[in-house]
Simulated scan of single mutants.
Amino acid sequence: MRRYETIFIASPTLTDEQSDELVKQFEGIIAEQGGELLKTDKWGRKKLAYEVQKFSEGYYTLFEMNAGPDLIAELERRFRNHDAVIKFLSVRMDEADKAAGRAKQRIERESKRKAQAGIKDRAPEEVVG
């Protein structure tokens, strides 16, 4: 199973209770499809950066989960078919963690190579001024 973050924005025409019910509905879909929900973060009603479907506000919700690609495909299909969801995005987080780890390893290799060659590594303060 891979780690994903999925954020969706629900219509501002919903009440707080309807928004909570919508979140519970999607949490149920994650559970029934075999995903492991790590965290649900309700950000509440926020202003959008730009208008989406003629709305300038929406209810933001973030899910962090361990899931397979089939579950993400099913969840996104349900987001598309639900009238109250105006926008959504799913991101695979373990790939971002791998990329950060590779960058850290590269920096460590460069530092080690410079130390062996006798090159002094400058601190960021020295470079800036």
Rank of each mutant, 00 (worst) to 15 (best):
I119Q: 08
G44F: 04
G58F: 07
P69M: 07
K47R: 15
T13D: 14
A73M: 02
Y59I: 12
V128K: 13
D94A: 10
A117V: 01
I107A: 15
K46H: 01
L14I: 08
L75N: 05
K39Y: 00
K114P: 04
L14R: 10
G34Q: 08
Q116N: 12
D121G: 11
P69I: 08
S111V: 08
G34L: 05
T15F: 09
D83G: 03
F26R: 00
G28P: 01
V128H: 02
N81K: 11
Q25D: 13
A96W: 01
Q25Y: 15
E21L: 13
A103F: 01
A67R: 04
A103M: 07
R2G: 11
R3W: 03
H82V: 04
I29L: 15
M1K: 05
Q105P: 01
N66E: 12
S56K: 12
D97I: 11
A49S: 14
G129F: 10
N81R: 09
D41N: 14
Y59S: 09
R122E: 14
L38F: 01
E95S: 06
E27P: 10
Y4F: 11
A31I: 06
A100S: 13
S111A: 13
R109W: 02
L62G: 03
L38A: 09
V85M: 06
Y4R: 04
G58W: 00
G68L: 06
K46A: 06
